[in-house]
């Protein structure tokens, strides 16, 4: 099939961007979206043009590096699918596809559709951990953890930190990301001692980074490639509230 791509091009963080249009010819439906872009880039290089800069690494939906807004939806809008696992069989011959970067004040553009997500790392550095050093830890079976709790924690821990939640949210809020991380640790007995401190510290950093707030629209949950539940945000709100009100 043949497609037309309308892609955001921006030389670097300082310059202004614009859309350019490129043809994508002889696209095969077994190609992944990124493989389609690889082919377009090969053509661009052959034509002496600058290839489109986009982030990707593992290309199996787990590293969270890929980050494209495809036709107005982060990762293209197929349930539980990251851009790298989106395949061309979902597109129609002759279609025009708009490709934009994650757009948020906290995610400055590096080039074209590649953005800087260091803000997520800084939120993690503020409290996204359990304070234990290497060594001297009790036996893995010393604290029994019910299967339900372990599973719930794992549901939250599945977050790949791609930032699609921010990109989809009309407020560019990072609440789903922060909630997933806080919930994973706060649900477990190991994370209990510093759970309020964690919630307060991570939310404070989140605000500092310039993310918006949660209006509970649910679009983050809808685009999340790991289908992280919106309910974790309620858990974060609870832990934050109790921490703030009780001065923990």
């Amino acid at each position: 099939m043949n497609l037309t791509l309308k892609v955001w091009r921006q030389k670097n963080g300082q310059s202004a961007g614009h859309f350019d249009t490129y043809p994508a010819r002889d696209v095969i439906e077994d190609m992944s979206f990124l493989e389609m872009l690889d082919v377009v880039n090969e053509d661009l290089i052959a034509a002496g043009k600058d290839p489109i800069a986009f982030d990707s690494d593992c290309r199996e939906g787990i590293c969270g590096m890929c980050s494209l807004v495809i036709n107005g939806v982060p990762h293209g809008g197929h349930r539980g699918t990251a851009t790298c696992q989106l395949h061309m069989r979902h597109f129609k011959d002759g279609e025009t596809i708009t490709i934009e970067p994650w757009r948020a004040e906290a995610f400055p553009i590096i080039k074209d559709v590649a953005v800087n997500r260091a803000a997520f790392d800084r939120i993690m550095q503020a409290g996204g951990f359990i304070s234990v050093n290497t060594g001297g830890t009790p036996d893995g079976n010393a604290i029994p953890i019910s299967k339900a709790v372990a599973d719930k924690s794992m549901d939250a821990a599945a977050c790949i930190g791609c930032g699609a939640c921010v990109a989809a949210c009309k407020n560019a809020s990072a609440m789903l990301f922060v909630a997933a991380k806080v919930s994973q640790l706060n649900l477990l007995p190991q994370g209990e001692p510093e759970k309020h401190r964690r919630a307060l510290a991570m939310v404070t950093q989140m605000d500092k980074e310039g993310f918006g707030s949660c209006t509970v629209t649910g679009s983050c949950e809808a685009v999340c490639p790991k289908e992280i539940s919106l309910s974790f945000i309620a858990k974060l709100n609870r832990d934050y509230g109790i921490g703030a009100l009780l001065g923990k």
Partner: peptide, 14 residues
């Protein structure tokens, strides 16, 4: 938090 708007924006799930 979003100084530059999307050209195409499809709110999903909201």
């Amino acid at each position: 938090a979003r100084p530059v708007a999307y050209q195409t924006y499809k709110p999903m799930g909201s």
